[in-house]
Design a protein around this nucleic acid. Structure first.
Lengths: 164, 164
DNA sequence: CAATTCACTTGCATTTTGCAACCTAAAATC
DNA sequence: GATTTTAGGTTGCAAAATGCAAGTGAATTG
C-alpha cells in the first residue's frame, strides 16, 4: 500500500526528503499549520487540486511517519487530522520556504505581510506553536487572494492581545 | 524535454514546491552549498545514488529555475555548476530541514554539531554565504560518516579566524 | 593514436501520478 | 423510515516520472 521507495542515505536532509520530498506532503502540513484545515474535504478543496487517492495516500504516509495523527470526532462520520509535535516542528522549514518563495518566485503574497514575517520570525513561530497547542483553528494566514486583504488582520507579532 | 507538470497555485509555498518538491532537487542544492560539489561526477558519486538521467534533468530544471548556473571551466571537458543568489538564498530552508531531520529522524549526524548549528543559526548562514561569495569549496559539513569525525573541524561559529 | 574521463543521452521496464468513477457508512432531510 | 447528502475514502486505467544499464561524443592523458 505504501509506495515509499527506498532510503538512500542517513544524512538528515536526505532522510527528511524521503518523507517530505514530493509536491504534496509539505503543502498538507502547511494547510494543517497555518490555514485551519482539519478534514479530508478541506484539503481536497484547498485549491491546489490534489487527487483524492494521492491525498489519502499522503495522509497515511504522514501518519506512518509520525507527522500527523487521526482523531475521530464525536460526529461519527468526520475524522480530524492534527499535527504531532514532530509535525509542528516543521514550522521553521515552512516559514523559510514561504519567505524564499515570496522573494524569489512571483507569488501572490502581499509584500507587507512577508516583510513583517521576515522581521518577526520568532514571533510568527511562537504564534504558530501557540495555536497548535490551543487547537486554535483560526487561519494564521489567509489564502493570499486579493491584494487588499479583507480578512482578519493576520500574523504580525506586535499586536498580540487576548483574542475576543 | 522538461517534464515539469503544471502550476497549481500562486501561493509562495506551492510555487517553491513546484520547483523543489521532489526527492533530488534540494539534495543537489545542498551538495552545492555545504559540501564542495561542483561537477556532474561529484553529484553522481554523492552516495545518494541519483541516476544520471535524472541528475541531468534536475540540473537543467534548476538552471531554468534560476537556482544554478553552468560555468564552463578552462578545461574544455568539465563544467562547473554554481548556485545563483536565488539558490544560495535557500540556505535557511536547508538549515531548518537539516535541523528538523537531525532531531526527528534517526540520522547519523553527530549531536554536538547539530546542537552548535542550532545555537548559531545566523553564524552558520553567514559562513555559508561567505563561502559562496568567495567561491570557497571547502566543505562546511563533512558527509556525516563516523561519529568520531576525523575531517576538518567544521561549521561552528565562534572559532572564526582568517582562513590560512 | 589508443585509452580514459567527463558529461551527458537513449531505451526500456517499473513506479508513481492524475483523473474519473465508484463505494460504504453515517447524518440530514422529508 | 426511505431518500438524499456528506464524509472519507477505493478502484481502474492511462499518462508521466523514475531507475537502471548501456551507449555517445568530445577533450585529455599516456
Amino acid at each position: 500500500m505504501g509506495p515509499m521507495p527506498a532510503r538512500r542515505s542517513r544524512c538528515p536532509v536526505s532522510m527528511s526528503l524521503d518523507l517530505l520530498g514530493d509536491r504534496w506532503s509539505l503543502l498538507i502540513v502547511r494547510d494543517l499549520m497555518v490555514r485551519g484545515y482539519r478534514t479530508f474535504r478541506e484539503f481536497q478543496r484547498s485549491g491546489e487540486g490534489i487527487a483524492t487517492n494521492i491525498l489519502a495516500e499522503r495522509l497515511h504516509r504522514l501518519e506512518a511517519g509520525g507527522i500527523v495523527v487521526r482523531e475521530p470526532t464525536g460526529d461519527g462520520r468526520s475524522t480530524h487530522y492534527r499535527l504531532t509535535q514532530k509535525g509542528i516542528a516543521l514550522a521553521p522549514v515552512l516559514l523559510e520556504l514561504l519567505l524564499w518563495g515570496a522573494h524569489h518566485e512571483d507569488s501572490d503574497a502581499p509584500c507587507a505581510i512577508i516583510e513583517q514575517m521576515e522581521q518577526n520570525r520568532a514571533a510568527v513561530l511562537a504564534e504558530t506553536y501557540r495555536r497548535w497547542k490551543d487547537r486554535d483553528p483560526t487561519p494564521l494566514l489567509p489564502p493570499f487572494r486579493s491584494p487588499t486583504a479583507p480578512a482578519a488582520a493576520p500574523a504580525a507579532a506586535s499586536n498580540r492581545r487576548k483574542s475576543k
